[in-house]
């Protein structure tokens, strides 16, 4: 996978945050490639920096974080170089849509759902149209926005779409709220959708319904999506390609069939072995994700790795491509023969 045919690509991203106990490296050499029309999974234990990655794309890194290195390529630009104003006007809610983790907390409880869902259209315009000047919308425009939203709400299979817009968030179930938020993300027809664990807060049955819906929507609208999860089962169901992250680093990436069928990195293998859906005994990985305050030297996984050798603690392993489009950062694999492949 090269950066050139990517719709969105993160290259060698490093983010630190100043804390009371010192500087924490919450992302270090994070890479990711999203190709048009595909769903790309980002998987890793909690605390591996998945949400930070999403925030970096959106230009919403929290206070006291510093981007030390890296680029976020999107539509010929580096999003990390754009001003906050340009990100708000051109990227967030317009070119890039967002589906949040917790549908119970993401909607403002004191505003009608319709007023909130209408905000993106008010500031970014209907798909293919100019945004209204300074968010001023007349009655006719508002009516067209509303009609558009109703059609999107039927696409996400929310019953009584018309009435739903006049209700308040607490009058919906968690699954319905997530449908509302998916509709909000789709309404401006963004080129990329970012979803940060959008089913984690829901019960299992609802999770399955939402995953099925996302799969259908992706096929119907040809969505390109980055889907964050800590669950390989979800990746298997939904994604085309996947990136495995550990302690702020990309350790492995490639087509889902290849990464799940023949995982290369010891961390991926152990994570896959944890998944209860697979007929493997629930292993659980001994140890915990290291604190980003003092990450292990070399390969960050080496203290927990059963295959670790002295060399693993000495230097960051190079990224290699042992199988077609399947990349891994681990000393178990010989370096790529062609340096051009490595640079890509």
């Amino acid at each position: 996978m090269s950066v050139d045919d990517a719709l969105l690509a993160i290259e060698d991203l490093a983010v630190t945050v100043g804390t009371d106990e010192g500087k924490a490296e919450i992302l270090d050499r994070a890479d990711l490639v999203l190709r048009p029309g595909s769903i790309h999974g980002v998987v890793g234990e909690s605390g591996c920096g998945k949400s930070t990655l999403i925030k970096a794309i959106l230009g919403l890194l929290p206070k006291r974080t510093v981007v030390e290195r890296g680029r976020v390529h999107f539509e010929g630009r580096d999003l990390l170089q754009l001003s906050g104003d340009a990100m708000a006007r051109e990227v967030r809610g317009r070119a890039i849509g967002f589906i949040p983790q917790d549908p119970f907390q993401a909607l403002n409880p004191v505003f009608r759902v319709g007023d909130q869902l209408m905000e993106s259209l008010r500031w970014h315009g209907l798909p293919g149209e100019e945004a209204p000047l300074r968010g001023r919308v007349d009655r006719a425009t508002r009516a067209r926005h509303r009609a558009h939203l109703v059609s999107v709400l039927s696409a996400v299979q929310l019953p009584d779409a018309e009435q739903a817009l006049d209700r308040y968030p607490h009058q919906f179930s968690g699954g319905q709220r997530q449908r509302l938020l998916i509709a909000a993300a789709l309404s401006t027809r963004p080129k990329v959708i970012l979803a940060d664990e959008p089913t984690t807060a829901l019960d299992v049955t609802t999770q399955l319904q939402i995953l099925k819906l996302l799969r259908e929507l992706a096929e119907r609208f040809g969505l390109s999506m980055i889907f964050v999860t800590h669950d390989f089962g979800v990746v298997a169901q939904l994604c085309d390609t996947v990136t495995v992250m550990y302690a702020g680093q990309t350790v492995e990436s490639g087509p889902v069939a290849s990464v799940l069928g023949a995982p290369l990195h010891p961390y991926s293998r152990m994570l896959l072995a944890c998944h209860p859906d697979r007929a493997v005994e629930l292993a659980g990985i001994p140890g915990a994700v290291p604190s980003p305050l003092k990450p292990p030297s070399g390969c960050r996984f080496n203290p927990r790795c059963t295959d670790a050798r002295p060399v693993c603690a000495m230097a960051r392993p190079a990224v290699t491509t042992p199988a077609s489009q399947h990349r891994v950062a681990c000393t178990l694999y010989p370096p790529d023969a062609d340096p051009a492949t490595r640079a890509a």
Binding site: L58, L60, A88, V91, R92, G93, R94, G97, F98, P100, D102, Q105, A106, L107, N108, P109, E119, S120, W123, H124, G135, L181, A184, A185, T188
Partner: peptide, 13 residues
């Protein structure tokens, strides 16, 4: 609150 960070991510000014 979460709904504020959501509003930012969803592109409200």
């Amino acid at each position: 609150k979460d709904f504020v960070s959501y509003a930012k991510a969803a592109g409200y000014p």
